[in-house]
Design a protein around this nucleic acid. Structure first.
Length: 549
RNA sequence: UGUCCGAUAGUAUAAGGGUAGUACGACAGUUUUUGGUACUGUUUGUCUUGGUUCGAAUCCAGGUCGGACAACCA
């Protein structure tokens, strides 16, 4: 009866390690560099790392990989923390690679003392040339055989600030002929007279990624250091430092990063979109950032579900955006309060309706167990309906309004289209209907049956709102794979603003962070730009549309 | 021309020598006061060539294709 969900390759490794007693406690970490906002690809890594320790016990650290002072900012630290917590995860320890600068410096000295590191005064260009190519070995230079004493002295001077940026660097002495370019005496410390967001001006030398990451993992007793595929070739170096230093042997495992159709994911490109004003900011609802998705109306649950469904493997992948959309529809279908809004209005007059109108009762969510309660919806003689719900010359399987056709007004009556009015340009401006008083929703004794039900808002009671419709940011499946500048492939219609949308009165009480379904139109949420007298809604995603006209 | 990683329906992901399964998508139908939801059905797949084996998606060898690697970035 145990419907065992199959394990991904990392879970298999962990189960084996736990079973064999190699580790008692699983420790993972999520290690972002605080140089940008987190995106859906990071969400995959977050769900993986935190999800693993939730499943197997143990804990996950949040460690900021802040070894490059010129790109990092506290603003990013804060946003990254907010995003992780919003996704629903809590780290055990908040740590920084910069916490380990002293230790790391000590490790470097140890390496020098073992004759495994040297100070190189070559220029960046010389070093690049000497490095060789993937198919040709590198060549050692004259600095490689300096004495330990001289190296120690020079490194001390580097630390003391006696050199300009770029004057020299500290390299590990490994193998200039290695088939792995990273093993050809990698740079481990460089000089940067720059202000660090946490250590201030205490340091002018900073460790490179390869000299900081594995050791930081080791210091924290990380058992499984999970990263993306582009670090595969770094693993040899990762292990080499740990072995030479004789410290806790964290192990690195790599999985394939997430790629999404019609999206770019690299921080560099996302930053470009922000800086060049092509989007409104990191949290533009079209951005694949966590903050963008949040503002768009995605829920943490839907993103976690998405990360669960895409799986973890080592092959390159390109996930269809439709899966993300499925996940948010599935979640919001159960949660979203239903309401009526007319995005593209046209007036409907019920010619035989007498009186001031009436109050109807509507279910807030037929998918919720308690139906989400009910609300009052005012109805009257004149209504706004969706322009696209009327066709002067109906198509084949048209269920909606057309001359002589009948539809039900959601929560209200069945009406029959008797007539319509056109302006001088031939545009329909008004639709005239008659209604059947005995067809009232919930107490219909008319015996009439109709195929179509349309939504509406009473003109007299309608409130107005701005609605922002979003579509994919790019018009090609894989902007990264296209020739030329990726920005040439931006979808010019990715955002459409409707400034005069009619909404039913109940929607005037909408709150930030709540999901709404505008019946027949899609899922929406209030935007942070909204004010009491100017409501702004974002469309999260449309409903699946079964009508193929 | 080197080293490393990978290859299963349109997209992802299982099956770990023994029936190729699941999800999303697409298509069709049932239900429905949302052309939504729910439910049912259909559709399409092991990169290739050999080998081992009673039996191979799985193990072995060659090939093909895709990706990564030559930042004082992470």
């Amino acid at each position: 009866m145990s419907e065992e969900k199959s394990l991904n390759f990392i879970e298999e490794i962990i189960e084996n390690d736990l079973k064999s007693g190699k580790y008692e406690t699983l420790v993972t970490r999520f290690p972002p560099e605080p140089n940008g906002y987190l995106h859906i690809g990071h969400a995959k890594a977050i769900c993986l790392n935190f999800g693993l320790t939730q499943k197997y016990g143990g804990y996950t650290n949040l460690r900021f990989d802040d070894t490059n002072p010129v790109t990092e900012k506290t603003e990013y630290v804060n946003s990254q923390q907010e995003d992780i917590q919003w996704l629903g995860f809590q780290w055990k320890n908040e740590l920084y690679a910069s916490d380990y600068f002293d230790t790391l410096h000590g490790y470097a000295v140890q390496l020098i003392e073992k004759g495994l590191a040297y100070v190189d005064e070559s220029t960046a260009e010389e070093i690049a040339t000497q490095k060789g190519t993937p198919t040709e070995p590198g060549t050692p230079n004259q600095y490689r055989d300096r004495s330990i004493e001289e190296n120690l002295e020079l490194f001390a001077k580097m630390k003391a600030g006696e050199f300009e940026d770029g004057a020299c660097i500290l390299r590990a002495k490994i193998d200039m002929a290695s088939t792995n370019m990273l093993m050809r005496d990698p740079i481990i410390y460089r000089i940067k007279h720059a202000h660090h967001h946490r250590t201030g001006d205490a340091w002018c030398i900073y460790p490179m990624y390869d000299f900081a990451h594995g050791q930081s993992d080791s210091i924290e007793n990380i058992t499984h250091s999970i990263c993306t595929l582009e670090y595969v070739s770094h693993r040899e170096l990762y292990d080499w430092f740990i072995t030479q230093l004789g410290i806790f042997p964290s192990k690195q495992y790599e999985f394939a990063r997430l790629n999404l159709t019609y999206t770019v994911m690299s921080k560099r490109k996302l930053l470009q979109l922000v800086n060049e004003g092509l989007v409104s900011g990191w949290d533009d609802p079209r951005m694949p950032t966590i903050s963008g998705l949040r503002r768009r109306g995605y829920t943490p649950e839907s993103i976690r579900e998405f990360c669960e469904r895409i799986g973890i493997a080592k092959r390159e992948n390109l996930i269809e955006l439709s899966l993300l959309e499925f996940c948010i529809r599935e979640d919001l279908n159960k949660k979203a309060t239903r309401a009526m809004a007319v995005l593209d209005p046209i007036k409907l007059v019920i010619t035989n309706y007498e009186g001031d109108g009436e109050i109807l009762i509507g279910e807030n969510n037929p998918e919720a167990e308690d139906k989400g309660g009910t609300r009052e919806i005012p109805f009257s003689k004149e209504l706004w309906i969706e322009r696209e719900d009327f066709m002067e010359e109906p198509a084949k399987k048209w269920f909606r309004l057309a001359p002589g056709a009948m539809v039900r007004l959601k929560f209200a009556y069945i009406v029959k289209c008797e007539n319509f009015v056109k302006d001088a340009d031939g545009n329909v401006t008004e639709i005239h209907c008659t209604y059947f008083p005995e067809s009232k929703s919930g107490s219909d004794t008319s015996g009439l049956t109709v195929k179509g039900t349309i939504h509406w808002v009473s003109t007299k009671h309608a409130k107005t709102a701005e609605v922002r419709l979003y579509d994919r940011l790019f018009s090609v499946v894989s902007p990264d794979a296209e020739e030329g500048d990726f920005k040439e492939y931006l979808n010019p219609n990715s955002k459409e603003v409707l400034s005069n949308v009619y909404i039913e009165p109940a929607l005037a009480e909408a709150t930030l962070g709540t999901g709404y379904q505008f019946i027949r139109k899609g899922y929406f949420c209030l935007d942070k730009d909204s004010t009491a007298d100017h409501l702004v809604f974002n469309r999260v995603v449309s409903l699946k549309d079964g009508w193929k006209g």
